[in-house]
Design a protein around this nucleic acid. Structure first.
Lengths: 366, 366
DNA sequence: GTGAAAGCGCTAACAT
DNA sequence: ATGTTAGCGCTTTCAC
């Protein structure tokens, strides 16, 4: 039985491995390949209903699935977009990746994931490879002030949506930016601290070289100046960019929290550049014997899942990830659907202050 | 000048958009396409050193980059692997994705990201699409006890490495499993609690239907039985699978923590199925007025970045993500490099107990 | 050592 | 309404 069955079984296996082609479907349905192709490509009107039915049945019966590589080679199109993030190990980027993947999938697109670790070289090289792969649309979460390193690709027709960054003067004309309104968010956060009565305030961040962080710094300083806080009571604690990668946001916060709270005249409130850093500040303050929110108020930015779980639950500025992911994909889709030139733009989504338990009036002594 | 320059400029642009082909390189170097191809495919020995140099220079000068779609169509190979995780929004999976992407990249592979939300249908459909894309190697973080839904794909030659799951009797013969040793980890955790003197212990988890969780439950029960803890003092709190997705691990922990600590006879120690759940338990216990570790010891599993940042820092069982990612990719690479049949196997990486501050002896009353 | 040529599976312009 | 056909860019046997 084994021996007799083998030839047939083998041929079936081979067919499966090799894949059913459009020619086989055409032959099975008694039509030409172009008719099958027409049906597959949304042109069912070009054939008789009866023909259409025969083709559909043949496709079904044979389990035909188009070969994407062949489609891509022929049309130059591919339903994959690239996502470049600093690191998906960072829960914020992980959550963003999840949302973006969701909207992309709902439009029939797959997502190729790249972690840049905020390295411009790596970023450029990665995107060049995405180009080689045939990918013509990329969501770049870079925050680098200059996108010069990508100029050649963009000139060739790469659709690029920059996330978490606003438009800069030197940007490519067609660039689309999607971002939370960082300045507004930072102002919201700082004003909250101010309204609680804080007069000695620190901003804690890693490198401030990125666009979004510069904006947050700007919003912070605007609010602080408007409140006429003397300069000596405002400290901007910024870790060296090379020293702390994205993964270490928490570690950086921990060090900052410790340093700041060990100083002679510690701040009574800290605005952390993001939630991971804020959580690190909790730990650092604790190490230095300070208690949140009694001795120190901490406010974050992002509203990651953990913000609400922390002890105390973290007051923060929420970025609406679902909306931002939808905006980013929507813009990218527009960009790559038809390659007719389209002016660049920036889309700023307004953030929202979420008050929890990590902020309180300053201690009497402060 | 503009008008005179235009034709040339235009042709340059067109070349860039269309991409340089191997024929153009061949012509520029005065050789045939096959010689260029031979060089590109690691067969430089088939030509004279002088020829080789000419070709290399032509490639350089023209900025030639192979068209991957054409390569794929011709060879059937593609340097992309798929990663299917429940959700990268979960920091554990985000971190794993980051590590896997790193090792894949170092071998010249890209990573296509898929979030299954632990839905078997979605999982299967996703992997079928990966197959259509030409992807022949997938790391599946599924934990579903049965991989029957993937049997057809595997039979066709899909290379599959199942992560976070151990081999089951009904598994496809060629399946490779990579996982932490869950039973050992759970025993380690439980023994730690026991050695601290706890005698009323709970296990908190979402659905226990997955292989890895079943193993953890098994390790837990083995340890608890060995210590002769009476059955009534051991509670297994398991949330309905449909109710809580992966994102909600923390929320589930919160509910469990609250419920358990509000009971007449609350446990003095909880083993959480993972760190996110453990962090949720912190919050739930707090809601119920219980203090970790004074009233309640909590131990987690995974050792995510946040474990060390939590208050108190979480005692947990560490999975070595770098090693596990390397093992997963290495196995997958073996699987897809040559398609000669290869027996299935399970690779279990031993976890490590990391004692921090969330575990302590039980309160005197307990 | 090098080149010619076939064809991977598909699409779309162009026949009929 | 349906079919014929010419490639997309590459690899690889087979000649020379």
């Amino acid at each position: 039985m084994v021996l007799r069955g083998q030839p047939i079984h083998c041929s079936v296996t081979m067919a499966a491995v090799k894949g059913v082609t459009i020619y086989e479907v055409a032959r099975a349905a008694g039509v030409s390949p172009s008719t099958v192709s027409n049906l597959l490509n949304g042109r069912p009107g070009r054939m008789l209903p009866a023909t259409r039915l025969r083709v559909e049945q043949a496709i079904e019966r044979l389990g035909y699935r188009p070969n994407r590589a062949a489609q891509q080679l022929r049309t130059g199109r591919i339903r994959v977009i690239g996502l470049v993030v600093p690191s998906v190990a960072n829960p914020f980027w992980g959550a963003f990746a999840r949302h973006l993947e969701g909207v992309a999938l709902s439009e029939g697109y797959h997502l190729l994931l790249c972690n840049s670790e905020r390295d411009p070289d790596r970023e450029r090289q990665y995107i060049e490879e995405l180009w080689d792969d045939g990918i013509r649309g990329v969501v770049l979460c870079s925050s680098l002030p200059s996108l010069d390193h990508l100029q050649p690709l963009i000139a060739r027709g790469l659709g690029l949506v920059a996330f978490d960054r606003t438009s800069q003067a030197g940007d490519p004309a067609s660039l689309v930016n999607v971002s939370v309104d960082n300045a507004v968010g930072a102002s919201l956060a700082t004003q909250h601290l101010l309204s609680l009565g804080h007069r000695r305030i620190a901003l804690v961040s890693g490198s401030l070289a990125s666009v979004n962080r510069a904006e947050r710094l700007h919003g912070f300083q605007t609010a602080v100046r408007a409140a006429r806080i003397p300069k000596r009571d405002v400290v901007v604690w910024s870790g060296a960019s090379s020293q702390y990668g994205d993964l270490d946001a928490a570690e950086l916060g921990r060090r900052a929290g410790h340093e700041l709270m060990s100083a002679r005249r510690p701040p009574t409130a800290i605005f952390a550049i993001n939630d991971m850093t804020a959580l690190g500040i909790y730990a650092g303050a604790r190490d230095a014997g300070a208690h949140v929110p009694v001795d120190l108020s901490v406010i974050g930015f992002d509203d990651i899942v953990l913000a609400d779980l922390a002890a105390p639950p973290l007051t923060t500025v929420r970025q609406s990830l679902p909306e931002m992911a939808a905006a980013a994909f929507g813009q990218l889709h527009e960009l790559i659907k038809d390659s007719s030139p389209r002016p660049g733009r920036s889309i700023l989504i307004r953030p929202e202050l979420v008050v929890r338990k990590s902020t309180a009036p300053p201690p009497p002594a402060g």
